[in-house]
Amino acid sequence: MSNGVAALVPAVLLAVSLVMGCRAEPEPPMRIGTTFWPSNELLFLAQENGWLNPSEFRLVEFVDDGEVMRAIRNNAVAAAWLSMDEVLAVAQSGVVDPVILFVSDESHGGDAVVAHPDLTTPADLKDRRVAVQIDSVSAYLLDRALRQAGLSVADVRLVNLPPYRHLAAFRRREVDAVVTSEPVRSQIIEAGGVELFSTVSTPFDILRALVMRRDYLESHPQQADTLCAAWQRAIVEMRSSEKARSWIAGRVGTSVEGLDRMLERVRVLSLAESREWLGVPKPKLLATLARLQTELLNAGLLPTATPLEPMFRWPSALESVCRG
């Protein structure tokens, strides 16, 4: 053994030991809470096409928004799809410091109050049984519909039902009206329901966004980047590929035409459109959230106000694909 090699042996052994021993432990996949909602399916499409590695991203399918909110509060998921009132509720809980990654869609009729045909206006809801999931966007929508008709929540008989039970309850006439969202909304309409009120009447009120826990975002900026890029690719794929739309339609249990009709009511926003909502220095969404918070406070759907600016404040080093 030459002098040099002999001298290197201890150093090499030490270096190898340190490198092997100091490697970080493999990370568990990032868990993202989803619900049965058309735009959520785009991430499934991204995973199907290999843009989101299943070993790095785990899409968890919850049956309703309440479960998603609970999951992100309990740190069971790192990110979740939430509507703006749910974002406020999560932030208000104080357990989570949420950051809005991107605005994914705007409900333009995707959320609605649907009733049996003998009811024709929101005013007809007085003293009727209305199925709604408490603490969700549906509650907010119902409040708007009732106020428009000069009623209040006290004027109707609320039946707290998760969305997956809405169709069955409606068919059995256990309730007179249902506050629900796509795709259940379309299913109830097909079952003979009539729409009394929808988010067509409340533009920009019901926006959904992908929200991430701040601590997770700070420690996993690259994964947030990958997520946003996959989202954008999935949007492009869905808009350009019949096959992609057909795949999504299969997941939401409808035809391609049915999916197209759903997407007219749930307008999916690209990253560029999302950036318009989240643009610095004063995000447009901030004013919308502030107005929404005031309405929720007035309606008693939110106990206290919460600061909104932190939701738009990204760790400065992490400005990337999501924020442009």
Partner: peptide, 26 residues
């Protein structure tokens, strides 16, 4: 696989600590 990889890495770390101890001793 993930749990096994974590356990394997932890074992490697223990061996790394041992290697450092041996190196310091020599």
């Amino acid at each position: 696989s993930l749990s096994k990889a974590v356990n394997r890495q932890r074992l490697l770390r223990q061996f790394g600590v041992g290697a450092v101890a041996v190196f310091l001793a020599v």
